[in-house]
Design a protein around this nucleic acid. Structure first.
Lengths: 196, 196
DNA sequence: CACTTCATGTAACTGGTTACATGATTGT
DNA sequence: ACAATCATGTAACCAGTTACATGAAGTG
């Protein structure tokens, strides 16, 4: 159950309300773990009863009360213990890859369009991460122990997006829809391959 | 619910028993989707009642009866329809990345060891895929419409593993445990960085 | 004789997704 | 007045994981 640990990491970096956590999962945390607010509130409640986080209710300056979550000593102990256990191998799960492989039994044009859409998405993500890196880590050689891991995970995000982008380009080139600079949904070029 | 579609693709390529499907998910299919036999049997039952696959019971030549699953006309229709719907963006979910980011709050040595283990795993996978590619697709320029998608998904597997391998190497280099040619679990070198 | 492989399933639990629900504040 | 953002939650459902369970055939 890793959402708990993702939350512990984020709260260890900086205490937050459930809402603020949700926004973090939409932003920086988002490229290695995602969660909706429902999941986050549910998990936070469980963690509170388990004593991993403590809540301080701040009477809302307008609006509902803010419930600030902080990692307890026990939470930090759990986080340290978990960090020492080896990570189980993650199994890949890509609906997109399944779809590519469905090509001989499905709609060729639609799948090519899907690859182009996917390409565009990853291009955008890559750009976003690269801007983030340029802004926040102009000189990666001088990072402290606290920032280094955050930077390295961002590097993972950049590598992942670059890889997907290259892969999509390879597929489009091989399948006969060469990507133009601005190509994203324009897949209407004539194709020079016929069935079988 | 994409397991259904992964099963449809696999059965469309070649009819199989639940057991045989399970083995496929352990092998070639395994690098884009994984499933246990429990999940597969449960899903197959659902698909049978939904009319997407038809079962032919073959009285077992020794052992229990084999239940051969074949895609029905309706199954093929569903597969084609699904292939034409755009793929929802997949959200990343990497416990490993969470762990890297937990470094300032956890066990530095253990996490470095974990990165090294992860690296070794991806090196092995990469080698495995590359052997597969060299054996089955010695000349990728001459693939037909049926084999091309299978080949391209394998290319995705290769790119993914290469990317992870490179990322792990970058992390090990940056964090002070340079990988040797055979490094996999030997992370006992003295580290030249101290906390903060 | 024990271990692995082939072959099938049930049941309980846990985690993730989707839909529903409320209500105040701030900006256009 | 309306929409967006801040802020919190409940409930139902669906998918995935883990544990349990059986039994025959082939191999060392």
């Amino acid at each position: 159950m890793s959402l708990e640990h993702a939350i512990l990491v984020s709260l260890a970096e900086q205490s937050a309300t459930g809402y603020e956590l949700t926004r973090r999962f939409d932003r920086s945390l988002g490229f290695f773990w995602s969660a909706t607010h429902q999941q986050i509130y549910r998990t936070l409640t469980r963690m509170q009863t388990a004593g991993l986080v403590a809540v301080t209710v701040q009477p809302g300056t307008g609006g509902p009360d803010r419930k600030l979550n902080e990692v307890t000593a026990e939470g930090r102990r759990e986080l340290a213990e978990w960090s020492a256990r080896p990570t189980p191998q993650e199994r890949p799960r890509s609906e997109f890859a399944v779809k590519v492989r469905a090509m001989p039994f499905g709609d060729r044009e639609a799948i090519l369009a899907d690859i182009a859409t996917q390409r565009e998405h990853h291009r955008r993500q890559l750009e976003h991460y690269q801007r983030n890196a340029a802004r926040n880590y102009p000189d990666p050689t001088r990072l402290g122990e606290a920032e280094l891991p955050v930077y390295l995970v961002l590097r993972g995000g950049i590598r992942t997006e670059q890889m997907y982008l290259d892969w999509c380009d390879e597929m489009l080139a091989t399948l006969g829809a060469p990507p133009t600079a601005e190509s994203h949904t324009d897949h209407d070029q004539p194709l020079d391959r016929e069935n079988s």
